[in-house]
């Protein structure tokens, strides 16, 4: 019983921190935000993205420019099962996403050999597949829609 309450209070605490404006900047941001940045400028640097899950569910989120899609999932606690197992170190491909052709084409960077290597393991690989941990958001990508493919395989005995 005691353990139960202890755990809950911990996650509650984390929840409070995350959704508290003051807390979130120092806890979630990996980059150092310059002290002089006004809150207005920070707001300007946000973009909207939407993850479309395999069952049609849409998860919309606000994201900071410079964040990767994996950061967006983690920082917003988006419920995408198993996403980002290796925490962005290019060793798991659980962050596989599919983009629309025009979005794929306008990404500033092409996938590296290492990213393609990991993509080769993914189910439902398409020509516009990418790894979410390798896509960094730019202003230009505001409104990006991302399809999260099914992870379930067909392995049977």
């Amino acid at each position: 019983m005691f353990r139960t309450v202890k755990n809950l209070s911990c996650s509650k605490f984390r929840y409070l921190l995350r959704f508290n404006d003051l807390g979130s900047n120092c806890i979630d941001s990996k980059r150092i935000v310059p002290f002089s940045t006004s809150s207005l400028a920070l707001k300007d640097e946000k973009v909207k993205v939407c993850f479309v899950l395999n069952d049609g569910k849409r998860l919309e989120a606000e994201a900071k420019i410079g964040d990767t899609l994996l950061d967006v999932v983690v920082n917003n606690d988006l419920n995408i099962e198993g996403y980002g197992a290796c925490e962005g170190t290019l060793t798991c491909s659980t962050c596989h996403v599919i983009l629309k052709q025009e979005d794929y084409d306008r990404l500033p960077e092409e996938p590296s050999d290492e990213e393609r290597d990991m993509l080769d393991l993914a189910y439902g690989l398409t020509d516009t597949s990418r790894l979410g941990c390798q896509i960094t958001l730019t202003k230009d990508l505001d409104g990006l829609e991302i399809i999260v493919p099914e992870t379930i395989n067909d392995a049977r005995s």
Binding site: S93, A122, T151, I152
Partner: peptide
């Protein structure tokens, strides 16, 4: 692991 994950889900 990715494949094991898909199967377990």
């Amino acid at each position: 692991i990715l494949h094991t994950m898909g199967n377990a889900f």
